[in-house]
């Protein structure tokens, strides 16, 4: 039904979005790639000579890189395990009939809407502070010594904070998926005497498989870029104990002003994210055809 005329109009309507996104992608990306081959430090003005892969060699051989890579994987993996397992549990629970579903659901999803800097600071000061935090009070009541979370277990503490922020997302998506489950199937299983556990294992969990994959992939994209939570709680420390790849690149670029090394790190981060992105894109693309 589309005529030649409407085709041309359509192209004209799509053009601004495409051109803007193309510029947004190609210009900075090209610059990052170019800078990554230069010896370029903002504190040392002058010629920025081409040095080939020197920045990459420097960045990749820096022990901090390995640490930050491991931290990144622990952060992403830890949060994924907590939010997916917790999200499945909460989705199964909230799918049950109960009184006050609306209010329960509002309370559960709320943390997702709290800006990262607020949730990080609230947890850091009002909960994890070893003197005045609520956890210190709980420790006092239990008669155990107060634990300085962000000093003694910085990465684990950040995993906790980030999990609190993302648990609602996983729950909400898995709950939405759960509600599309045909209830007749469950009823039939129940009548045939299937236990609650086997109904969960053989009917609900397989039904959720696709939604779980989506949650894992989307969260991974966002979790690879966790930044604000680290900046306001630990500044990547103590030492580099809670530095992830994003924070390391930020530190190289904007704290040490080493544009060359920072850019090489940026390219490494892009490659890592792309590995995940390819899988996610495939899933979403399949859905588009359906």
């Amino acid at each position: 039904m589309a005529t030649q005329h409407s085709r041309a109009a359509a192209r004209f309507m799509i053009a601004p979005s495409v051109i803007l996104l193309l510029a947004w992608m190609l210009i900075p990306l090209g610059m990052t790639l170019w800078f990554s081959f230069l010896r370029y430090n903002l504190l040392m003005p002058g010629a920025n000579p081409f040095v080939g892969f020197e920045n990459y060699a420097y960045f990749l051989s820096d022990p901090t890189f390995i640490t930050s890579l491991i931290n990144t994987l622990l952060l992403v993996g830890g949060v994924l395990i907590i939010t997916v397992v917790g999200g499945i549990g909460l989705a199964v629970l909230l799918d049950q009939p109960m009184w006050g579903t609306g209010i329960v659901r509002i309370m559960v999803i709320s943390p997702f809407f709290v800006m990262p800097t607020v949730s990080a600071l609230v947890w850091k000061n009002m909960f994890m502070n070893p003197v005045n935090g609520l956890f210190a009070y709980v420790a006092e009541v239990l008669g155990v010594p107060a634990f300085d979370f962000l000093t003694q277990a910085p990465l684990a503490s950040i995993i906790g904070i980030v999990s609190w922020q993302w648990l609602p997302f996983a729950t909400l998506i898995l709950l939405t998926a759960m509600q599309s489950l045909d209830s007749e199937q469950l009823e039939a299983a129940e009548m045939d005497g299937a236990s609650a556990l086997s109904r969960f294992w053989y009917i609900k969990l397989p039904h959720l498989a696709r939604a779980i994959t989506v949650v894992v992939l989307i969260q991974t994209i966002f979790l690879l870029s966790i930044f604000a939570e680290i900046l306001v709680t630990t500044n990547g420390g103590p030492g580099v104990a809670s530095t992830n790849l994003t924070y390391l690149v930020y530190a190289e670029s904007l704290l040490r002003f080493d544009v060359g090394t920072g850019s090489a790190g940026g390219v490494v981060a892009i490659i890592l994210a792309n590995i995940v992105a390819i899988f996610l894109m495939r899933m979403i693309g399949k859905n588009l055809d359906a």
Binding site: S17, P28, M31, F35, G266, A269, A273
Partner: peptide, 30 residues
């Protein structure tokens, strides 16, 4: 008015969202 390329354009747009911000931090800052 979907054309042959619509799906590709959509997927490509999505792919720009997958770009980690830190990958373009330096050029954007400059």
């Amino acid at each position: 008015v979907p054309g042959r390329q619509t799906k590709n354009v959509l997927m490509w747009m999505l792919s720009t969202k997958m770009l980690p911000p830190v990958g373009v931090l330096v050029p954007l800052y400059l």
